[in-house]
Design a protein around this nucleic acid. Structure first.
Length: 569
RNA sequence: CGGGGCGUAGCGCAGUCCGGUUAGCGCGUCGCGUUCGGGACGCGAAGGUCGGGAGUUCAAAUCUCCCCGCCCCGACCA
């Protein structure tokens, strides 16, 4: 492609709306343009990258026996009501009515559609296993789209679904995907880790995420530098060291103390002169089953994902509800002598003594609590957020808490969807069973953004070879210099004929502009054709990756390019 | 949804507090000339519903109210 003819609008100045390096560079290099919040057009260069990524994904999916389909982006709301996810997604789902008034939506994902196909066509265990996948635009009306293409409202996703007759089949399908994903991300030039994850709205018995470590990431993962433990913060666990000493002993004389106006852990701890770890934070939520109180140590924070796992969907109680249920203001509430509330305690509190918490009476706290003796805890579960430096649950060495970008997620769904939608098959003995499903997603836009996050410098993008929009960028430094023009033109023709994809900067612009654009656009190889070297029938080859330069004879270019591009593959 | 910021030429911004010439600057664009290996220079030109609406006023980019859009923090996030 000639830059003089191409639609590759580069930007010298940083667009105001962009903060992340990847977002800025995607705009500056002319890969994307925003149409509305979280809704982007892919321009020719960006789309070339997307197509490369898609090709890699397609090859690896086909390799594990995946069959590509193309499913509707518009779905009748009904199928989403069957599984209850219309309500789960709520405002996240774009909804509208067709002309007959039928409820429709833009699909945020496709389990329901797959399940519908499966219940119509899968009859026998002989029809299984299956892996169906698609590469499609998905829609989610994110409450807060941000970070460019990383959290968009319309985005391209590869999603696949495995259908199996038996649990071991799911294991195999899951494993196949895991391996395919590793190959996909490796081929895209990404440096990633795999972490244990929460299944969230998807349900199912377990999932893993493919994560790319980056300060720009919106996810938080916990990793152990000593062993292989790695988990999303939502599900991560740890060994909390510091509580050992005085946790299981202390004053157990139960009594109320006057704590006027002392509401927060800070205030109460300071006022009563007891460490924060001896306080119990009592947090009131309204779950579907009714009010729930979560108890955690005063020096911990509640992990809402874990609470969700324990009690299902919930929301914080409103002020009036707190007053009504606990007879006191938030800040003075506690689990003791509390009627009609399900009480969940964090594991670390199980046998603690000498604790303090709210008295369910304004301006009073209770001290001298022996949790086992005094608190009617329904069950003790892990509810706390892991902190940096806490002990690894596997090897006890200090954990690290870091930011990451989620680029893929694989779920063992089980029978959640097949059961609610009646997707069943007959097994060898003629019994009807629900199909066992898995679901596996990859965000194409996220791969692109993540690749840039991981591969750029102050001058621009540094494309990994396999997903670079072009492999070679030829710069003809002086359009008025005859030899410069003919030699660069020849190189462009020859290299293209040899099968390389070339971007050819033949514009009538100053050299500096071309250098800057070449660095910004980030093709792996730059071939500089300029007067100086042409005097000796030579051109310069620059590797974008490390800036290394080599001056070689014009007729040696083909060989040199081949050498560089094939050794990297 | 809560908090904050922003909206003026294609892009980046000044002007708004304290109303008053013809609304500016840099980059980009177009024309002519000089220049030509890391975002050149000179001369000339085009380009604006000052996000939208209503109001106050002799007079509104500027003040008031309402609305819209975008960004950031938080909540949320298969």
């Amino acid at each position: 492609m000639r830059l003089s003819e191409g639609f590759i609008p580069t930007l010298k100045e940083i667009p105001r709306e962009a903060e992340l390096p990847s977002h800025r560079l995607m705009l500056r290099a002319g890969l994307i343009r925003m149409l509305a919040a979280g809704i982007y057009s892919y321009l020719p260069l960006g789309w070339r990258v997307a197509k490369r990524v898609i090709t890699i994904i397609r090859e690896e999916m086909d390799r594990i026996g995946g069959q590509e389909t193309f499913l509707p982006a518009i779905n009748p709301l009904e199928v989403w009501q069957e599984t209850g996810r219309a309500a789960d997604f709520g405002d996240m789902m774009f909804q509208f009515k067709d002309r007959r008034g039928r409820g429709m939506c833009l699909a945020p994902t496709h389990e329901e559609v797959i399940c519908d196909l499966a219940r119509i066509h899968i009859r026998s265990y002989r029809d299984l296993p299956q892996i169906w996948y698609q590469i499609q635009t998905k829609f989610r009306d994110e409450p807060r789209p941000r970070s460019g293409v990383l959290r968009a409202r319309q985005f391209i996703m590869k999603d696949s679904y495995s259908l199996d007759a038996v649990e071991e089949g799911l294991d195999r399908s899951y494993q196949l995907h895991r391996e395919a994903y590793q190959r996909i991300f490796t081929r895209c030039g990404l440096d990633f880790i795999i972490v244990g994850a929460s299944s969230g709205l998807m349900g199912g018995s377990g999932s893993q995420e493919f994560m790319l470590i980056s300060d720009s990431g919106e996810d938080t993962v916990v990793t152990c530098p000593s062993c292989h433990y790695a988990a999303n913060l939502e599900v991560a666990t740890s060994v909390k060291e510091q509580m050992a000493e005085d946790a299981f002993s202390g004053d157990t004389q139960l009594r109320e103390v006057h704590t006027p106006g002392k509401r927060t852990v800070e205030e109460v701890s300071g006022f009563l002169h007891i460490p924060k770890s001896k306080l119990i934070k009592s947090l009131l939520f309204i779950a579907e089953q009714g009010p729930v109180m979560a108890l955690i140590s005063g020096d911990d924070d509640l992990n809402e994902a874990k609470l969700m796992t324990a009690v299902g969907a919930f929301r914080p109680a409103h002020q009036e509800e707190v007053r009504q249920i606990c007879k006191a203001e938030a800040g003075f509430i506690g689990p003791i002598e509390l009627e009609g509330v399900t009480i969940l305690g964090d594991l670390t509190l199980t046998r603690t003594k000498g604790m303090a918490t709210g008295a369910n009476r304004d301006d009073y706290h209770i001290v001298g609590i022996d949790v086992a003796r005094d608190v009617q805890v329904e069950k003790f579960v892990d509810l706390r957020i892991v902190g940096d430096g806490e002990g690894c649950p596997q090897c006890a060495r200090p954990l690290k808490v870091i930011n990451a970008i989620e680029i893929g997620h694989i779920f063992r769904l089980g029978t959640k969807y097949s059961q609610s939608m009646g997707a069943t098959f007959l097994d060898e003995k003629g019994r009807e069973n629900p199909i066992i499903m898995g679901s596996y997603g990859i965000g194409i836009g996220r791969i692109i953004a993540a690749a840039i996050e991981q591969n750029h410098d102050k001058n621009g993008i540094i494309w990994p070879l396999n997903i670079a929009p072009y492999q070679i960028h030829i710069l003809s430094l002086n359009a008025d210099h005859h030899k410069c023009q003919t030699v660069s033109e020849d190189l462009y023709q020859i290299l293209t004929r040899e099968g390389w994809e070339c971007l050819f900067d033949d514009r009538r612009l100053r050299a500096g502009v071309k250098f800057k654009d070449a660095d910004l656009l980030g093709m792996p190889i730059q071939i500089v054709v300029g007067e100086k070297n042409l005097a000796e029938d030579k051109v310069e080859i620059i590797l974008r990756k490390d800036g290394s330069r080599k001056i070689i004879a014009i007729d040696g270019v083909g060989k040199e390019v081949k050498k560089i591009l094939t050794q990297k593959k």
